[in-house]
């Protein structure tokens, strides 16, 4: 199963980036093999507006089934929801730890955004 984790760096030992739309990287990980692809999110991170929406569409495109991140705003949440990506907020630690927590069923999925949008 593929999941997405926001990350401050480009590998599994990097720390989870608490931001979603403007995260440095979004890592797409196969939870079975731990094979991963680090997506450089700098275009969205520096975008004028709508970063969460664009990042959400990107995660959907990669067919990730879940997203592990710190905070997810309303527009990003709406986009991820449309892409059938489940969202777990308040995730901390390294990407690897986050993936393990997900596999152990220790993350809770949100049914709404957990932060306000930024204008």
């Amino acid at each position: 199963m593929k999941i997405a984790v926001t990350s401050k760096g480009n590998n599994l030992d990097s720390e989870v980036d608490p931001r979603f739309g403007r995260a440095a990287y979004i890592i797409i990980v196969d939870t079975d093999t731990l094979e991963f692809e680090a997506l450089d999110n700098s275009v969205n991170a520096n975008s004028f507006k709508g970063a969460g929406i664009q990042a959400g569409a990107m995660v959907g495109e990669k067919k990730a089934e879940a997203l592990l991140t710190g905070f997810c705003g309303p527009n990003a949440f709406k986009t991820l929801n449309a892409a059938n990506v489940k969202v777990a907020n308040n995730v901390t630690g390294t990407v690897k730890e986050a993936v393990q927590a997900f596999k152990d069923g220790k993350v809770t999925f949100a049914d709404e955004a957990n932060t306000d949008g930024h204008w």
Binding site: G50, I53, A82, A83
Partner: peptide, 18 residues
């Protein structure tokens, strides 16, 4: 450039406030 439209799979989302 304001990210007011998102297309995910076969769903089009618009964000009028943007």
């Amino acid at each position: 450039r304001f990210g007011a439209i998102a297309i995910v799979g076969e769903t089009v989302l618009t964000f009028p406030e943007l």
